[in-house]
Write a protein that binds this DNA or RNA. Structure first.
Length: 602
DNA sequence: GAGTTTGAAACT
DNA sequence: CAGTTTCAAACTC
């Protein structure tokens, strides 16, 4: 341990504002030697940026990762130097706030409303309550500090993570950020590559996410809450450097924690965890080289075990929710808000199995993609034919003029045709929606030729479809560079039209899925009700009629409708009354100018 | 509730 | 960057 020079101590004194002289006194008189503290605080004397202004400051928040009902760090714009600059607000301040965090710790639960030495006055806290003694809650050891929130109601000793010690707090934040600019970022990132294939296999809640740094566990087998991955309810990833990891997809030890008739028996689960760690359960045969077992995408998870088992508490579900949002939070100066999480309604003992678990098969997705691609190619064909026809009619001058003034009309016409083709005939109200969307189309043509997502999609789906189509004038030739053969505008019109069609179809599919999910839920509900003795329910049910079924089942389905809002037609296209029916694309007759033949199976 | 274990953070 | 120490949460008894 190095000596702290006088200079450093001088810096220390000079950096700390006058108002904090008392605090410095506190520091010196605390149970930590002054020099040691000086080192620990690692004052830099920069005195510049403060926590809230740092672009990287976000509530990384174990709160956020786990149980927090939502904490938001708000920067006061008016008083940038004010110690109160950082204001911690519960998001959605509707009272009553959810119970204080740390439901998983009986210990802290019992403490949660007790007055403590020098922490800020007790009130319900949105984050885990810390018990720091030596860090003054100014290091990442402190969960509150790490979460970017003030200690409030904690059981900490000599706490400086509060408004009164804002100055030293800021210094600490600064130091922490110097050491690690990502210190306050979420530790768990979304994984775009999470495979969901094993969801059905286990049938439980799938956690997508990846620990940014990865864990380094040695003895816990990553099956205890010591492990940050396990705690966050995610599988270990290639980022981890853990030893003897058992927190990977397909791990027998891991599955043993969550399966079997004892799945809800906490004692059993903990026993299983211990056994797994000591190798008593299963013989996975893995050599426990973490790398060999790391999945590429985070996957299935179902909560830590032990006394604090999440199987009996909602935090894990919060985590799931938070994981999903944490990945997005990097673009926001604020930690992700978790307001009104559908899973936050209360503790549940039941494992969650998606209603769509049996409905969506990988092949379906492939087929859907194929259908969409075929659809777009048909649209492109039609537009190409259309355009060539119009060329013949109009002389070149008119054509060029039309491209500047009459574009919108032409485009609209094309869209109407496509919309007709898609949905047969659309009713008036739908059309008005459609038209309103079109009003922007021509502008979009210039400003936004094609969304990157669509471009990427088209690049991915690529070629066989489009190239095979051999479009007459190349207007819809699939060219990821969106260049060349045709004037940009007409090309982008085609793309826009394709995009619109694809999105519309995709929306329809999602709606269909929702309906199927609802149907399934209705079935399950009816079944369970009938099991309890309510025999009349099942007779009301018919299997495949979509939304109307929500009126049945003694109000049970009413809730379904609430929980699964249908995706609105938005501003994409006319909505066909039969949108819920499966799509079937019929071959396009040659020389046909109009719409692609899209029919619906009844 | 005290003591132990664990792994992240801090430090050398 | 690796090794060590500190720290506080998780866990055990």
């Amino acid at each position: 341990m190095g000596e702290v020079g006088n200079q450093e101590m001088d810096n220390l004194s000079s950096v700390i504002p006058q108002t904090d002289s008392v605090e410095l006194g506190n520091v010196v008189s605390s149970d930590v030697p002054a020099k040691k503290l000086a080192r620990q605080l690692d004052f830099t004397g920069t005195g510049g940026a403060v926590l809230p202004e740092h672009p990287h400051f976000q509530s990384r928040s174990r709160c956020q990762e786990s149980e927090s009902p939502a904490v938001m760090v708000v920067q006061s714009q008016s008083q940038p130097q004010s110690p109160q600059q950082l204001v911690v607000l519960p998001i959605g301040t509707k009272a009553p706030l959810p119970p204080a965090r740390k439901p998983d710790s009986p210990k802290s639960r019992s403490r949660s409303n007790v007055e403590t030495k020098d922490a800020t006055p007790k009130k319900q806290k949105q984050c885990k309550l810390c018990n720091c003694k030596h860090s003054r809650c100014l290091k990442l050891y402190c969960e509150c500090f790490a979460s970017g929130v003030y200690c409030d109601g904690c059981n900490c000793t000599n706490c400086h993570n509060n408004v009164e010690h804002e100055a030293s707090r800021r210094e600490a934040v600064e130091t922490t950020l110097e050491r690690n600019p990502n210190a306050f970022r979420p530790k768990i990132a979304n994984s775009p590559h999470g495979t969901r294939e094993s969801r059905d296999e286990i049938g439980e809640l799938v956690m997508l996410g990846k620990h940014n740094k990865g864990c380094h566990c040695k003895k816990s087998g990553c099956l205890k809450k010591y492990c940050e991955c396990f705690q966050a309810n995610i599988l270990c990833s290639e980022n981890c450097k853990c030893m003897d990891c058992k927190n990977f997809e397909g791990s027998e030890e891991r599955q043993a924690l969550f399966h079997g008739d004892h799945a809800n028996n906490i004692a059993y689960i903990q026993q299983a965890a211990n056994a797994a760690i000591t190798g008593a359960i299963g013989s996975s045969g893995y050599a426990c080289l973490p790398v060999s077992k790391k999945r590429k995408g985070p996957e299935l998870g179902f909560g830590p075990v032990g006394k604090d088992s999440p199987l009996n508490s909602i935090p894990q579900l919060h985590q799931a929710n938070n994981i999903m949002s944490s990945g997005m939070s990097t673009s926001s100066p604020f930690p992700a808000a978790h307001v009104g999480s559908p899973v936050a309604s209360g503790p549940s003992k039941f494992s969650f199995r998606s209603l769509l678990a049996d409905l969506i098969q990988p092949n379906d997705l492939k087929e859907l993609c194929s259908v969409l691609v075929v659809l777009t190619s048909e649209v492109a064909k039609i537009q190409a034919e259309q355009r060539s026809d119009e060329k013949q009619i109009n002389d070149p001058q008119q054509t060029s003029r039309a491209s500047s003034s009459g574009d919108g009309v032409q485009h609209q016409k094309a869209e109407e045709k496509a919309a007709d083709g898609e949905c047969g005939s659309s009713n008036q109200s739908d059309r008005s929606v459609h038209d309103s969307s079109n009003s922007n189309s021509s502008d979009m043509t210039r400003a936004r030729p094609m969304s990157p997502g669509t471009l990427a999609l088209m690049c991915d789906e690529q070629d066989t479809m489009f190239m095979g189509a051999g479009l007459a004038d190349g207007s819809a030739a699939h060219d990821c560079n969106t260049s060349s053969h045709v004037p940009d505008r007409s090309l982008s019109e085609v793309y826009i039209e394709q995009e619109r069609i694809v999105l519309t179809k995709f929306r329809d599919c999602l709606n269909k899925l929702i309906t199927l999910g609802e149907i399934k839920e209705t079935k399950l509900t009816s079944r369970s009700e009938s099991e309890v003795g309510n025999q009349n329910q099942s007779n009301n049910f018919t299997s495949n009629s979509g939304c109307q079924q929500r009126s049945i089942s003694n109000g049970v389905v009413k809730n379904v409708a609430l929980s699964a809002p249908r995706i609105p037609p938005a501003c994409t296209a006319a909505h066909h009354p039969n949108n819920d029916l499966p799509l079937k694309i019929l071959p396009v007759p040659k020389n046909r100018k109009s719409k692609p033949q899209i029919d619906r199976e009844v």
